[in-house]
């Protein structure tokens, strides 16, 4: 499974009239998840989120590409 790097957010049953809407829906969820957390708690949430999503993706080759990409340029 190749890494998807084009916009890929969507929600079943929703009609979008602007291309940015699904991405903004996700980003708002992400930021709201962190609302009122301490910096330490936020770090923990992020770590757990990565683990949960990594297991969901499952394919190690894809994850290897993603991990490498994330590390580049930091």
């Amino acid at each position: 499974m190749a890494l998807t790097l084009t916009p890929n957010f969507n929600e079943v049953g929703k009609t979008y009239f602007n291309a940015y809407s699904p991405g903004d829906d996700f980003y708002e969820l992400l930021i709201n998840t962190h609302r009122d957390l301490s910096d330490e708690q936020s770090e923990q949430v992020n770590a757990r989120l990565i683990l949960i999503l990594a297991n969901h993706i499952g394919d190690i080759a894809t994850l290897r590409d993603a991990l490498q990409l994330a590390r580049e340029g930091v």
Partner: peptide, 15 residues
């Protein structure tokens, strides 16, 4: 990366 460009939000202009 295109996916990240779609998330850049410097103001979603009035539609």
């Amino acid at each position: 990366h295109a996916f990240a460009r779609a998330l850049v939000n410097s103001g979603r202009l009035s539609v």
